[in-house]
Design a protein around this nucleic acid. Structure first.
Length: 817
RNA sequence: GCAGGAGUAACGAAGUGGUCAAACGUGCGAGACUCAAAAUCUCGUGGCUUAGUGCCUUCAGAGGUUCGAAUCCUCUCUCCUGCACCA
């Protein structure tokens, strides 16, 4: 019989339709143990799904299906992070309204997602661009505002000239815009909205110990939060107290100058008339440095004319403005100890400032000695260790009320204002009389007005009817806030909305949210570690503090998938024209083939380059599989197969749990090789279950063909019976393989000598005769020779060349004739 | 500069102290089937050697620990990722 390619198109459509009709993936609260499996929802771009999406969502789907089969009540929802810049840029470029663009994009996404066979609960689908969704973004904002966690501040902010908007720190990647790798962000002083994420810094840090995330992800977050313990010290400058932060109060006697950030908002107060010109010259100079120079910039500064008084020894120390001090960390000013800090050392050398050693060790004429040590030149503290001195000096400062212990974080408050249209409007009204007035909850949502002009500046400002409103407090003239919220606001709580996505009266029902959440398994790209994954943790803690949630962390387990690059190793992008769309592959080979190929290719956490060739192996396998099961004639029970089956169940279960899908796929294939030699119906069914998370369509079809009613997707995952696992069979397998090697080896030599043969005679030691006889068929097939097995003790054996004397344990004698 | 990860056959990739170097897949080569091809199936794919034995080489490089190292330690090289003046 010739083998035909199986009709994957018909089968896949058939089962996708059945799943949908019966709604078998709809999650309902219940008594069963729940499992919440979530992939980071996509931004629905006009380009549609690419291979990276196909990969990561397949990983999630396999996990969700696996957990469902294991008997969990699984929530595996789907949605769209549909507010964002690309929609708006399309509006500017091609004149299509963001609403329309988004609608089309989502429709396109849905079509592809369904074609992949992902087992989403479509009934809970959400879009962040839906006013019924962003209403709750606004509601959370009001709550934050109420608690003093949303505030307005004029501050130097990152401005992307291409996006025409402000960016959060997390959206600035080495000085450039996260969306425009070629665009350097500018510094602007603007009045902006911030969320006080720093109030949760400590908990964001300590919470990491409680969750099962990759070490790398935790480490990156720890560094990003950047906790350091130190002392805040007040220095007197022009009769005023200025705070500075230091981790080395033990070196305070070595302070020989101070440096204030060139971007410090109160810098001007320090500049004397005499130094004004010099300082201005300096500020202009650092403004004009190009990005390259920024990276390898020398430490530079200028004397401000002012002096500070060292509170410990009353020395007068000059204050410089410098380019290397970060304005919004600590207080934007540092005490400089050139003997014990490399940066201060370089600065002192350049401007010939004194270097005073106060910790013994090193050679401070050559370089800063930054280690801890014993104090000297430090008055009454001489002889103390650095550690003791930190304590003592801080205590003295505390006693004199000019200093205190302080914990400082690198984490900054989250700047959420965006001067763009396609985001959730900030529910605030500015009244000339009453000032900043929050919109009342009952007036939410503040919907985006449809009629606006795109192109220049913030489109919302172009709709005067929308902007000009009456003050909710006094009824007088007022105007709306035209800034919208950062897109990451929307994704900071979406996982909770899935628990109750249709609720019109509340953000979500707490009981439902507490039943489903937290997420048990979250999957998403590594690029979100310092952005989204910090925000979502912050929001969770805030909503908990509002009394809505009973847990602290949004995601208990997190898996970072590898990135699928284009075949040339480049990032897939439209501009490079190297995007591979899954739909084309599905039409050619089927979704099951693609899914299997994607996970067989490499370990899911590794970056890969897309290669169309990976499909053929999976395609062949599925064809063989289909043809075999289509004509299945069940065989007798076979202990060897039972052993293999149970071993495979055990290993595959663990592999899926550990996201080693590539290994699971291999083991499933190996099992099939055994099954092909003959199987019981029951074993065949278990095999289909093992494969079903990976290839759900073909397994549903074959499950049905074997006479089963109902869906394999809702079956029970098999459990391994360890008693049936017998390693003896593995050894047997190895013995056969080595025999085949030997036979082929001999055959090669014989052929080289010009002799031909068609029969194979084996002479085994008596205890092994049976084993080889049992595998006769296999040996015949693999060598292509008619085979006979004799025991060496058999007096009747055909052995003209006395090869039986070569027989050894595990190695029969061989004769070719 | 700092931190983390990686380097295994032509390629992708398993293996993380002995059982064991290279599972599995692609590619390539040979054979079977076929009038022929595709598909499919079988075998091979570091070197030498041999009626199947044996020997050597190899896990980026160099050292070390160990009876024994791809695996543990040290140094060096290359690549990737994150943070980069955070006082």
């Amino acid at each position: 019989m010739t083998k035909e390619n199986y009709d994957f198109m018909r089968i896949e459509k058939k089962w996708q339709k059945k799943w949908e009709e019966k709604g078998i993936f709809h999650a309902k609260e219940g008594k069963k143990k729940k499992f919440y499996s979530l992939d980071m929802f996509p931004y629905p771009s006009g380009e549609g799904l690419h291979m990276g999406h196909a990969f990561v969502f397949s990983l999630g789907d396999i996990f969700a299906r696996f957990k469902r089969l294991q008997g969990y009540n699984v929530l595996y929802p789907v949605g769209y992070d549909s507010l964002g810049l690309p929609a708006e840029n399309a509006a500017i470029k091609v004149g299509i309204h963001p609403e329309e663009y988004t609608k089309k994009s989502i429709a396109n996404f849905m079509k592809q997602e369904k074609a992949m066979g992902w087992s989403y609960d479509w009934s809970r689908m959400l879009k962040t661009s839906d006013p019924n969704y962003y209403k709750w973004d606004q509601w959370i904002f009001l709550k934050l505002f109420e608690k003093g966690l949303a505030y307005r501040k004029k501050s130097p902010v990152n401005w992307c000239p291409k996006c025409q908007t402000v960016l959060a720190n997390e959206q600035v990647v080495s000085g450039k815009c996260w969306r425009h790798e070629d665009t350097r962000v500018e510094l602007r002083h603007l009045e902006q909205w911030f969320l006080k994420i720093t109030d949760y810094a400590e908990e964001l840090l300590s919470g990491l110990d409680k969750i099962d995330w990759p070490q790398r992800a935790k480490l990156i977050q720890r560094n990003w939060i950047g906790r350091s313990e130190g002392t805040e010290i007040l220095f007197e400058i022009n009769k005023e107290k200025w705070p500075i932060f230091t981790t080395r109060p033990d070196t305070i006697f070595g302070v020989t100058f101070m440096v204030v950030s060139a971007q410090h908002p109160k810098l001007i107060e320090l500049v004397t008339d005499k130094q004004k010109k010099e300082v201005e010259k300096f500020l202009n100079k650092i403004k004009s440095v190009s990005e390259k120079e920024m990276e390898e910039m020398e430490k530079e500064g200028v004397f401000t004319g002012s002096y500070a008084i060292n509170p410990m020894n009353n020395e007068q120390i000059p204050i410089y403005a410098g380019n290397f001090v970060v304005a919004d960390y600590g207080s934007g000013m540092v005490m400089s100890v050139p003997a014990h800090d490399q940066r201060d050392f370089e600065f002192a050398k350049k401007y010939k400032l004194p270097i005073k050693q106060v910790i013994s060790g090193g050679d401070v004429k050559k370089e800063a000695y930054t280690e801890a040590g014993i104090l000297k030149n430090s008055g009454e503290f001489n002889g103390l260790s650095s550690e003791e001195a930190r304590e003592h000096i801080t205590k003295v400062l505390e006693f004199r009320k000019i200093g205190k212990k302080k914990i400082q974080y690198k984490l900054r408050d989250w700047l959420i204002s965006r001067q763009r249209y396609w985001g959730a409007p900030i529910p605030i009204i500015y009244c000339n009389k009453c000032g900043v007035v929050p919109v009342s909850e009952k007036n939410l949502p503040i919907k985006l007005p449809e009629k606006v002009k795109f192109g220049k500046g913030n489109p919302l400002e172009t709709n005067k009817e929308w902007v000009n409103v009456k003050c909710p407090k006094c009824g007088g003239k007022a105007r709306r806030e035209t800034d919208t919220m950062d897109t990451f606001v929307n994704s900071s709580w979406y996982y909770l909305r899935y628990a109750d996505s249709k609720n019109k009266n509340k953000i979500f029902d707490s009981n439902k949210a507490n039943y489903w959440a937290p997420v048990d398994q979250y999957i998403g790209g590594p690029e979100h570690i310092t952005g989204h994954l910090i925000y979502i943790r912050f929001y969770t803690k805030f909503l908990r503090d509002l009394g809505l949630l009973k847990f602290d962390e949004p995601a208990l387990r997190y898996f970072t998938q590898g990135i699928v690059h284009a075949s040339d190793g480049e990032r897939m992008s439209k501009s490079k024209g190297n995007i591979i769309e899954p739909l084309g592959i599905i039409e050619k080979h089927g979704a099951d083939t693609l899914r299997l190929a994607l996970v067989s290719f490499a370990s899911p956490d590794k970056d890969t380059n897309w290669n169309e060739k990976i499909l053929s192996g999976s395609y062949k396998f599925l064809n063989n599989l289909y043809n075999f099961f289509d004509n299945l004639k069940p065989d007798k029970k076979n202990v060897k197969l039972e052993s293999k089956l149970n071993k495979t169940i055990k290993e595959v279960t663990q592999d899926i749990e550990d996201f080693q899908y590539n290994l699971a796929a291999i083991k499933i294939r190996e099992l099939f090789e055994y099954i092909e030699k003959g199987t019981t119906k029951k074993t065949a069914e278990i095999f289909l279950k093992l494969l079903s998370p990976f290839c759900p369509h073909i397994t549903e079809e074959l499950w049905e063909k074997l006479g089963n009613k109902g869906f394999i997707s809702l079956e029970q995952w098999p459990e391994a019976d360890e008693k049936k696992i017998n390693d003896q069979f593995d050894k047997e397998e190895k013995a056969i393989t080595s025999l085949i090697n030997d036979v082929n080896n001999v055959a090669g030599i014989v052929k080289e000598k010009g002799n031909s043969f068609s029969r194979l005679f084996l002479y085994t030691i008596p205890s092994e005769t049976e084993m080889y006889k049992n595998n006769l068929e296999e040996i015949s097939k693999r060598t292509g020779l008619q085979t006979k097995v004799f025991s060496v003790a058999d007096g009747e054996k055909h052995d003209p060349e006395n090869k039986s004397k070569k027989a050894k344990p595990g190695r029969p004698g061989i004769f070719l004739d």
